[in-house]
């Protein structure tokens, strides 16, 4: 049996908004560690990994490990019915064919429950090894989202290059080219406004902007984003979810034919 209660229900709404366009159906894995998900987009180019640790919930009970297959579009429809200030409780059973979402208003004067049908999803859990990255860039998530949005109006791909000068985002398209360089900047009023570049060696990789833009849907979950780059490895774009866990996106670089 799974029973979890999240006082900050808006967080779960934001999580769904950040994955539903990338993945249609996914298994949510329930364990004593937390509520997690690993899923690929249909073209197997991008992978999303979500962890919401049990300690982050006001109440968390999971008697045994099991998975619940959900259509994320349908789950998003249900969670959109929760108010931003609502407390969300999720209840499910191992082997059950439905999951229940309960929404409580902060003043407890409105309580709603929605039951959603589950689905059988055959998915393989991939082991993602810990890796050393050539460069790790931490920057404000809103800045990264702005860059991806701006560049996608000019080109389809972004070249992310990290050198000792900074991190450069470049694109080219029919109308011209664009280069945006962000330098390390730690002299800011708030730590979340800093751009921090840890570089072991220069790296330059090309990615589809369509996916990067999809990842930036997670920006409301975190003020900062961490981009880990290594040649020969998928990029990792990570948004930490305060005190609860993370959402990580892995994307294969574009390679020459």
């Amino acid at each position: 049996m799974l029973e979890l209660r999240l006082v900050q229900g808006s967080l779960l709404k934001k999580v769904l908004e950040s994955i539903k366009d990338l993945v249609n159906d996914a298994n949510f894995d329930c364990s004593a560690t937390g509520f997690s998900l690993q899923a690929m987009d249909s073209s197997h180019v991008a992978l999303v990994s979500l962890l919401l640790r049990s300690e982050g919930f006001e109440h968390y009970r999971c008697d045994k490990n099991f998975s619940m297959g959900m259509n994320l579009g349908n789950m998003s429809k249900m969670l959109k019915c929760a108010g931003n200030d609502d407390i969300i409780t999720i209840k499910g059973d191992d082997g059950g064919d439905t999951i229940t979402f309960m929404f409580e208003s902060p003043s407890q004067d409105k309580i709603a429950d929605f039951e959603m049908k589950l689905m059988d999803i055959d998915s393989e859990h991939l082991g993602i090894p810990e890796a050393e990255y050539h460069a790790i860039v931490r920057m404000p998530s809103a800045e990264f989202a702005r860059i991806c949005k701006d560049l996608s109006s000019i080109g389809d791909t972004v070249i992310i290059s990290v050198t000792k000068e900074g991190v450069k985002f470049s694109t080219k398209g029919d109308i011209g080219t664009a280069n945006i360089v962000c330098r390390q900047n730690t002299t800011v009023d708030k730590p979340e406004e800093a751009t921090i570049i840890e570089m072991q060696e220069p790296v330059s990789l090309t990615f589809a902007l369509r996916y990067m833009n999809s990842f930036t849907k997670a920006s409301p979950l975190s003020n900062t984003v961490t981009i880990s780059l290594s040649s020969e490895l998928p990029v990792v774009v990570e948004y930490k979810i305060a005190e609860m866990g993370y959402i990580r996106y892995y994307l294969a670089p574009k390679i020459e034919d």
């Binding site: 690929m40 073209s43 197997h44 180019v45 991008a46 992978l47 393989e124 991939l126 082991g127 993602i128 090894p129 090309t206 589809a208 998928p234 892995y250 294969a252 670089p253 574009k254 390679i255 020459e256 034919d257």
Partner: peptide, 14 residues
């Protein structure tokens, strides 16, 4: 004319 790797194959082979 560029290709992208299949992440499932990538992680299964690493």
């Amino acid at each position: 004319n560029k290709h992208q790797a299949d992440l499932e194959k990538f992680y299964n082979s690493h």
